[in-house]
Amino acid sequence: MTQDTLSPPLIEFRSVHKHYGTVPVIRGIDLTIRRGEVVVICGPSGSGKSTLIRLVNGLERLSAGDILIDGQSTAGLDGAALRRLRTRIGFVFQQFNLYGHLTAAANIALAPRKVLGLTDAEAFRAAATLLERVGLGDKGDRYPSQLSGGQQQRVAIARALAMRPEILLFDEPTSALDPEMIGEVLAVMRSLAESKITMVVVTHEMGFARELADRVVFLDEGVVLDDAPPERFFGATGHPRAKRFLSQLLSPLHQVGG
């Protein structure tokens, strides 16, 4: 945490707005994420947290404001420039989104081959290494339908890492998993967090936030209500709305929908 405050800003949200038609989803967010930071974004469903990270890699277009990556404006980027930006940002989806017609290894190797221009041999060698790293060294020739949810998500993380990104974005990576599979995915994410890659994680896994996050950002109705280190966020001085959210998260009778 201490040296992170010294590192340069990597992602800067500048009065970011997003609305679908007339429905506002993000209503003016200013937020800076520094190189090497692990930031957890949480909040009730519909608070705009997924939209916020989908704006970073241009899966959603900004309605107003700007997002700077490494000091460069990304508003209005498209075509080849947007694709170059996306190669620097890994994205892990809630539903994994592995390509159904390709094996695990081929899923990981596709973008390195087609976008970075690696040879098949190079790309598959790198894929094998990444599969080892997520603990699936023996599953390279399996198709997604032959893998459990937890295994699919670990392949998806390896796929995101294959482009050697500077930033990893996670969109509720464990929400679609059965409880017994959440641990294996969190373990991979923990090892990534310790490797000091910049991570922005939308999640309800407060254990992960408490243990590994440098900061926890609490979003509600499209604005940032709290932005604090975990000890303060989970401590006595946290925002009252965040406290209510946390208590609902812990009480199954008030479970918030994913």
Partner: peptide, 17 residues
């Protein structure tokens, strides 16, 4: 599933790719 296209775009593939 629309995530298939999104995953491809997110890793830097063009629409055509």
């Amino acid at each position: 599933p629309k995530g298939q296209r999104e995953a491809a775009l997110a890793s830097g593939l063009s629409e055509g790719q």
